[in-house]
Amino acid sequence: MKQQTGKLDLTKADTAYYTAARHPEYLTLPPYNYLALTGYGSPDSKAFATATESLYKLAYGIKGIYKQTGEDFVVAKLEGLWWVESKVDSFKDALAVPREEWHWKLLIRQPDYVTAEAVEKARNQALAKQGQTSPGTSEKLHQVAFENMEEGSCVQMLHQGPFTDEPRTLAQIHSYIEEHGFTPVGKHHEIYLSDYRKTAPDRLRTILRQPVK
């Protein structure tokens, strides 16, 4: 990771993690710490929106704590792991089943110096403001985990365009995986370089990443 003075911005300090080519490529990743919130259902659902809101609320609370100690940082990009409950082929089944049957784990990566104690402090501060927080968000705040994840070997590619066009990019990724003798392991990973709430679908930029062995 690059050394950076002033406010830490992980997208600039760790370009290997936050950039991808327009063709499949192999990379190896070390472990990182994340805020994580698991759910079920369509990404267009209210539950998904509430989970996103809760995750960001906690992330900005942690940022505020570290800003006071002179270790301010930019809240990182939203990410998501996606899967379906299948014993056969999670990748193919995910493209065939209704979106309401999708499982997801939303992630926001944290700087290495963020501690579990700071996460709990930020959680308690957010919950103390329940008058400004919807009941659904308060419930989700309790469910946000602070966890370490190591994906190790991966194949990834940059997808530009609407989420509905992802199958064509995923097909290239899985062709590369088969051609190079890899086997998919773990969950399909997406990093949202664009804010999908504010960006036109054809301008969305998303890293699609698949752990392999």
Rank of each mutant, 00 (worst) to 15 (best):
Y34V: 03
K105A: 01
G80R: 10
N124D: 14
A59P: 01
V155K: 06
R168L: 08
A128S: 12
L78R: 08
H189G: 04
A118L: 12
E79S: 05
Y32M: 12
G131P: 00
K7V: 05
Y18D: 12
S90N: 13
S54I: 01
A16M: 03
H188S: 06
R168C: 02
K87Y: 08
R123N: 06
E117W: 05
T133Y: 00
H23S: 10
L55A: 08
E101K: 15
T5L: 09
K105P: 00
G39A: 01
P135C: 00
L78S: 13
F146K: 13
R209H: 00
P184E: 10
S138V: 04
F146P: 06
P30M: 04
Q68M: 10
L55N: 08
T5Q: 14
S45D: 00
L193E: 01
N148I: 06
Y32S: 11
K7L: 04
W83V: 06
L55K: 07
R209M: 05
E101M: 13
T38N: 04
Y32Q: 13
Y18E: 09
Y192K: 02
A47T: 09
P24C: 02
I108W: 03
T137G: 07
Y18R: 06
T5E: 10
L8W: 08
V185Q: 14
V88R: 15
Y34P: 05
D112P: 00
E190C: 04
L81D: 02
G131A: 04
Y18T: 11
Q110L: 10
G181R: 10
E151H: 07
P167W: 06
N148C: 09
E79T: 07
C154Y: 00
S42E: 02
A122N: 09
F48A: 14
F163D: 08
V185K: 15
H142G: 13
R99C: 05
E25L: 12
Y66Q: 07
D112I: 00
I62D: 04
Q160E: 15
A59M: 05
H23M: 11
L208I: 12
Y192N: 03
S42M: 03
W82N: 10
